[in-house]
Design a protein around this nucleic acid. Structure first.
Length: 434
RNA sequence: GGGGAGAUUCCAGAGCGGCCAAAUGGAACGGACUGUAACUCCGUUAGUGUAAACUUUCGCAGGUUCGAAUCCUGCUCUCCCCA
């Protein structure tokens, strides 16, 4: 199965330029995808794009991951309805390092001819003067051409309902040209023939192929993947706490595992093809098994396992499963009391924790005080919020429901120093009293 | 440079002198149901307070008024159109 066929059955393929398939068939082709350092970690939305590179490499081609040190300074208007804030250079550098480290986990950098590479477009843009850029690059592309891109049009024209457009700064307008030049640079220096990306990158990528054609008479190709969306069409990759990050410090392996486990059947079936490398017959078998007994969530479990292991590690996966069983099994106070301190801590690793002193604990008059003021707003921002939630029956301490916000604080401390606090069913906190 | 529109609680968006902590919708969170789901239903969404009530909030700074998100003045910012 060639790359295009592979991506197609996995439902990852959105569109590609004519000739791409022939190019891939003809020779080992170098393809790249850019990642802008807008955060210190990639999230699972980016991971779908990384999977394109992974599939490229599996098909015997050479993947290049570009860290957008330069483009990140500009801001891509694609898919954004409003002008973005610029990040400081310092932030960008921290972010670049983080992203680089993550990319290295997914691609093989040592497998001979098609070993992966990482490049940073800041390297070739830092010395490129503005005037030279205008003369050497800008001259080849007309404003008319740039204006015809959807990402630009959306920001300039009012939409169908007559809503005013947000406008677009010259800086963001120039973004596609910068990205286009990246492609040209890699084409010239790294023999890159293909740029991939999410489908919203189509416009930017074709500016690149156009630039290569005009500056060099060369032929380069584009392939974009489907933008992963939730079944209701909204943006994928956000959970209650915001984005689902690949960095364990931003999204703990436990939460990460839980995210996948909680997907709807429909999403799990779609995403297992995107996020895992499991072969077609294996996925068919799992889907079959799932449909026989949907409540067992075989699909979600298989997906969660595969992705958690690859993004984090086998140990992290095991810990996440163990923690899930304890927290979502029919545990009660007795179960918690039965855990050794070591297991207790490992179960709650990655769960927000607060430390308070024995004096503070003794001074808290009511449960609502304890869960807001005493614990420094970690669990609840205000007493009012704590009270409301308790009134709604949404708070448990040591797995037992708190009856009233005015209850006195006299819980049994686990191992003489821990309290397990639940806000709703899925949010756990560990309070340690020292 | 000229003309116009606008800035409201997480977002969108009503309010146009007291009944406004501010309609409605979205989103989020909590509860019931369930498969740690979907659907549906219910509740919550400025702070303190058991409550009555009080404090801070409607771009910023002043003013008018017994009383202002609502009126006036100045400022800042945003967008659109024309040159």
């Amino acid at each position: 199965m060639n790359l295009i066929e592979e991506l197609r059955w996995r439902g990852m393929l959105h569109d590609f330029m004519p000739g791409t398939e022939e190019q891939l068939a003809a020779e080992m082709t170098t393809g790249y995808i850019g990642f802008d350092p807008t955060a210190s970690s990639l999230h699972i939305g980016n991971l779908a794009t990384i999977m394109l590179l992974v599939q490229l490499q599996r098909a015997g081609h050479k993947p290049v991951a570009l860290v957008g040190g330069a483009t990140g300074m500009i801001g891509d208007p694609s898919g954004k309805s409003a002008e973005r804030n610029l990040l400081s250079e310092e932030t960008l550098q921290t972010n670049q390092a983080g992203i680089r480290a993550q990319l290295e986990k997914f691609l093989d950098f040592n497998c001979g001819a098609n070993s992966a590479e990482i490049v940073n477009n800041y390297d070739w843009f830092k010395e490129f003067s503005f005037l030279n850029f205008l003369r050497d690059v800008g001259k080849h592309i007309t404003v008319n051409y740039m204006m015809s891109k959807d990402s630009v049009k959306k920001r300039i024209n009012a939409d169908e309902e007559g809503e005013r457009a947000e406008g677009l700064s010259y800086t963001e307008f120039a973004y596609q040209l910068i990205q286009g030049y990246d492609f040209y640079h890699l084409y010239k220096n790294k023999n890159v023939r293909l740029q991939m990306g999410a489908s919203d990158q189509w416009g930017n990528i074709t500016t690149g192929t156009e630039l290569i054609r005009r500056m060099d008479g060369g032929k380069a190709f584009a392939l974009v993947g489907k933008l992963v969306t939730k079944s209701d069409g909204t943006k994928f990759g956000k959970s209650e706490g915001g984005n689902v990050w690949l960095n364990a410090e931003l999204t703990s392996p436990y939460k990460f595992y839980q995210f996948w486990l909680n997907l709807s059947d429909e999403e799990a079936e779609k995403l297992i093809k995107v996020y895992t490398l499991l072969p077609q017959d294996e996925i068919a078998r799992i889907t079959e098994e799932h449909n026989q007994a949907p409540h067992l969530r075989v699909l979600q479990k298989a997906l969660a396992k595969d992705v958690t292991i690859r993004v984090h590690s086998e140990e992290d996966y095991n810990a996440a499963v163990e923690a899930s069983e304890i927290l979502f099994g029919k545990g009660d106070l007795a179960t918690l009391k039965g855990l050794s301190e070591q297991i207790l801590l490992s179960v709650f690793e990655g769960v927000p924790q607060v430390e308070i002193t024995k004096e503070q604990y003794a001074e808290a008059n009511t449960v609502s005080d304890l869960l807001s003021e005493t614990t420094q707003g970690l669990i609840f921002d205000s007493k009012g919020e704590a009270k409301r939630m308790i009134k709604n029956g949404g708070v448990r301490v040591n797995l037992e429901k708190v009856q009233s916000a005015e209850d006195a604080v006299n819980f049994e401390l686990l191992q003489e120093k821990y309290l397990v606090v639940q806000k709703g069913k899925k949010n756990y906190y560990l309070v340690s009293v020292k």
